[in-house]
């Protein structure tokens, strides 16, 4: 009887301590609702109704450069961008694998900018791409593939071990968003309406070796195989960001890969006029990323291409999707208005 009492008391205490630590962990983890919001992108996907025709995967060159709203409104393509800051190719693979647990889109669009990184460059970017993932074998694989030498798996399992000293920088938003979040993207698209023309774009410095690393190629093969296995068309793109510099030697390797594997590849840097891009008005940071105007032009071009090349169905008229997109469009327009006011634009 006495022993049983001790066991119950011990179990109860342990449960309370675990609950306390879990609360502490929630409080200390970055919320990514203001300032650097990129860390919130990956988790937002799980709140979506997962019935997309097109999934984008990649880094900022997808989540800032294509507007899913335009794809829907002009072409009836229901799309989502599973992008995150400096998303490395192995992370793109695992994020795709994770998404394919929930849905099977017709087309996956992968931006090949990350081929230049054979391994992870920054723990901060790893965190932003991985932490939002739900636990699954894909997340475990993603962590193992991404960890730098000084990172520890256990710090992904218990992020409090990573963020333990954030108590010094807690803000009111850390308390406010402890149990809830607010959306910061529109189907994964991160909007900016302001403009800063591209001027004096630096030329790339010559490299000793232009070959992409074996690990990067391995994961591109894995993405291709995964898509093939699921019957998904894979489209490779290079977004029209002027820098980091995209070398012709890199481009040739991508073209060869696409040709050899029967894939389509669009280098938007080569077709900026066709798309109608104007680097004086369509970028908000001097050519690194597109602003709303640039992202809508790119989406417009891509929507037509997707329908032509892959025969994607126009799903406008589906009452359920119409309703969803009506709501999304309203939020999208409200954000445009908010940002215009913020940046003092018309």
């Amino acid at each position: 009887m006495r022993k049983r009492k001790y066991i119950i008391r011990g179990a109860l205490t342990l449960a309370l301590i675990i609950a306390f630590l879990a609360l502490l962990q929630r409080l200390l983890m970055p919320k990514y609702v203001d300032g650097i919001v990129e860390g919130a992108f990956v988790a937002e996907y799980y709140k979506e109704e997962k019935d997309h025709d097109v999934l984008f995967i990649g880094d900022c060159e997808v989540y800032e450069n294509f507007s899913p709203k335009v794809l829907w409104e002009k072409y009836g393509i229901n799309s989502y961008i599973r992008g995150s800051a400096e998303q490395y190719i192995f992370q793109s693979y695992y994020l795709l694998e994770d998404a394919l647990r929930y849905e099977t889109p017709d087309v996956v669009v992968f931006n090949i900018q990350s081929l230049q990184f054979n391994e992870a460059q920054s723990e901060a970017y790893n965190r932003m791409s991985i932490e939002g993932m739900r636990w699954s074998p894909s997340k475990v694989g993603c962590i193992l593939a991404s960890m730098k030498e000084d990172e520890h798996f256990i710090e992904y399992v218990f992020p409090i071990l990573r963020y333990h000293s954030r108590w010094k920088e807690l803000k009111s938003t850390d308390f406010e968003y402890m149990f809830k979040t607010k959306p910061v993207t529109f189907n994964g698209y991160y909007m900016r309406v302001d403009a800063r023309p591209a001027e004096n774009v630096p030329k790339g410095k010559p490299l000793g070796d232009y070959s992409f690393g074996s690990n990067a190629w391995k994961y591109l093969d894995k993405i291709r195989d995964l898509c093939a296995k699921k019957g998904i068309d894979l489209l490779l793109i290079k977004a029209p960001s002027l820098y980091p510099y995209w070398y012709e030697e890199w481009n040739e390797q991508c073209e060869t890969y696409a040709r050899e594997n029967g894939l389509n590849y669009i280098n938007f840097l080569d077709i900026t006029e066709e798309v109608g891009l104007d680097y004086t008005t369509d970028t908000y940071d001097g050519g690194l990323h597109m602003n709303l105007s640039g992202a809508e032009k790119l989406a417009d071009y891509l929507g037509a291409y997707l329908q032509k090349e892959y025969g994607l169905e126009d799903r406008r008229g589906d009452a359920h999707l119409d309703a969803i997109w009506k709501e999304k469009a309203a939020a999208y327009d409200a954000e445009i208005a908010r940002q215009k006011e913020l940046y003092g634009l018309e």
Binding site: R9, F20, L21, L24, I160, L161, H164
Partner: peptide, 24 residues
């Protein structure tokens, strides 16, 4: 029991939060 639990949980939390370990 309550005092003991609070003392050791408190010390554990202190080490966890204030300890100079991990990134940085």
């Amino acid at each position: 029991y309550l005092v003991r639990t609070l003392v050791w949980t408190g010390l554990f939390t202190l080490v966890l939060l204030v300890g100079a370990y991990g990134a940085g």
